[in-house]
Amino acid sequence: MSQQGTWADDVVENQPLITTNEDGTKTVITYRINEKGQKIKVTQIVKEIIVKESVNKEVAKRKQWAKFGEEKNAAPGPDYRTTQVGEEVHLRLGTAWKTAEKEAEEKKAEESMLSANTRAITCRYCKGQHFSSKCPFKDSLASLEPDPMDESSEAGAAALASPSAPGKYVPRHLRNGGISASGESSRERDDSSTLKIANLNEMVDEDMLRNQLLYPFGPLVRVNVVRNRETGRSRGLAFAQFASESSAQRALDALDGKGFHSLILQVGWSKPKKPQQQ
């Protein structure tokens, strides 16, 4: 259409044709072009209703007030800093509101108790909802069952076999066959050969530790100095992991209580040693 005439033609053509009917309604006829280029006639019958809302004059006037005091120059409309919408609260009116509320609460408590019961307590022998020790078939079934300690590792193994079994949470320490020692775990590293070196001079960095202090004792896996997250300054503490525990032990014996860059080192295991380390 725009190829044929000016935009003015367009406007004139798009003017709706309004006719007033006898019953008070109006018929509005408009034309428009759809995507296919076809001209479409739209006929609407409209009834106009005037809704009057009465507002107190004073109240209307007050709505136009300029803000003042601490709200001076603030944008119109509520400020989220001072005005928030709270959580839904209920007002249930009734003479027996107390008993009704109490009942609802009791029901809720009962339900949660019930669900907790079903989840938590399962008999190891007969799979009933009671403690294993209270099982009536304990004596007859106990001999058929393997040792409970073995069972837990078996359960772990089962979980490994079907790791994507839905709906059942398997604790992390049971996921790798339930026998994963701390060494195997990807998350938890082996700290058995790691030394904690405290009371370091602030100027000492990783390279200095490697090249000046720890190199005689054997190959190092990693060395890192604990630093302040923001400032990057050393906090006078470092961890050094040796390739073997024996070299770590030698370093510990040699360095604890010795001076390094004008401070007396305190060297110890990064974790307290268990008496029977494997």
Partner: peptide, 25 residues
Amino acid sequence: DLIFTVAKDKIASVWYSYNGERVGT
């Protein structure tokens, strides 16, 4: 249409009751 509030701090506030907008202090 207005709510006036006072507290133990030193200012008094006035609010529109219909939307909670603070008009001034």
